[in-house]
């Protein structure tokens, strides 16, 4: 699980980039701005992961990355 809430880009993407190096089947990422949602999603899609975005309360988002 990656908690990137409060972090602005590119930090959330860097954290995901580091985590996917180990090629996990599933990865959960928390962010709190739409820019990060977009950037993480794009990065994940380009690196072989599908992304399910869920909006949580209080402008927070959970992104579940699943290996294709």
């Amino acid at each position: 699980m990656i908690d990137a809430r409060g972090l602005s880009c590119p930090l959330p993407v860097i954290m995901v980039q580091k985590a996917v190096k180990d090629k996990p089947d599933k990865l959960e990422v928390y962010v709190d701005n739409q820019t990060a949602v977009g950037n993480v999603t794009r990065f994940a899609n380009n690196n072989g992961y599908d992304v399910a975005v869920k909006e949580l309360e209080d402008d927070e988002y959970s992104l579940v990355l699943t290996k294709r």
């Binding site: 590119p10 993407v13 980039q17 794009r42 380009n46």
Partner: peptide, 19 residues
């Protein structure tokens, strides 16, 4: 669009993102 002059070079180098 999140247009950014620094982000362009940065994302291209770090993430191979060329948008």
């Amino acid at each position: 669009s999140r247009f950014c002059m620094v982000g362009g070079v940065r994302d291209a180098v770090m993430f191979k993102e060329f948008g």
